[in-house]
């Protein structure tokens, strides 16, 4: 009995490790997206690393989000890391087997006191399951980083990865 409680408590701790107060998370503006449809991701960066200014923003593009194009940003250098996909995706009749795996905005200076957004778009594969889809993101500053890569989905997660909730297309093929 005690052991069972202990297990339950451990599970609860695994899901919810409280930590240093978090003022705001890096999040995506549109909380929902349709499976098999295009999505404009607006990554909102509300603060720096502690009090330090953000110089670089890095977003991982996980498998299942293809045909990705980032929006260039004045004052920031844009870099794309491409690679092969695990699966092939149909993009309006063209089969895609490789594409963007990571987007890097660098050389900027986003003060802790300021707010900014980083934009990219792409398409969610039709084969994805409904539920949360995570875009792990990292802010890099002069003296450290803020890694928003916790994909556990826990409500009390310390530094959750930005996510969007995927819902099934209502009217058949979602174009």
């Amino acid at each position: 009995m005690i052991r069972m409680f202990a297990r339950a408590a451990l599970a609860a701790t695994l899901l919810a490790i409280p930590a240093a107060p978090v003022f705001a998370h890096v999040t995506l503006e549109a909380p929902e997206a349709v499976i098999g449809a295009g999505y404009k991701a607006v990554l909102r960066v509300p603060h720096g690393c502690g009090t330090q200014a953000t110089n670089l923003v890095r977003v991982q593009i996980p498998e299942g989000f293809f045909a990705v194009k980032p929006m260039p940003k004045p004052g920031w250098d844009l870099e794309i890391v491409s690679g092969p996909y695990e699966n092939a995706y149909d993009n309006h009749g063209t089969t895609l087997t490789e594409g963007v795996k990571e987007i890097v905005w660098s050389g900027g200076n986003l003060l802790n006191e300021h707010y900014d957004e980083f934009v990219f778009r792409g398409t969610f594969a039709a084969a994805l399951e409904p539920g949360k889809f995570f875009f792990p993101a990292i802010q890099e500053c002069a003296g450290g980083e803020e890694a928003w890569i916790d994909t556990s989905g826990a409500a009390e997660a310390d530094m959750p990865a930005p996510s969007v909730t995927l819902v099934p297309a209502s009217g058949g093929h979602g174009h």
Binding site: Q60, I138, I149, S152
Partner: peptide
């Protein structure tokens, strides 16, 4: 209770 946060690579956290 021991919980490990293991940063497997830049974007991957195992707990």
């Amino acid at each position: 209770e021991l919980v490990l946060d293991i940063r497997l690579d830049r974007f991957t956290l195992a707990r």
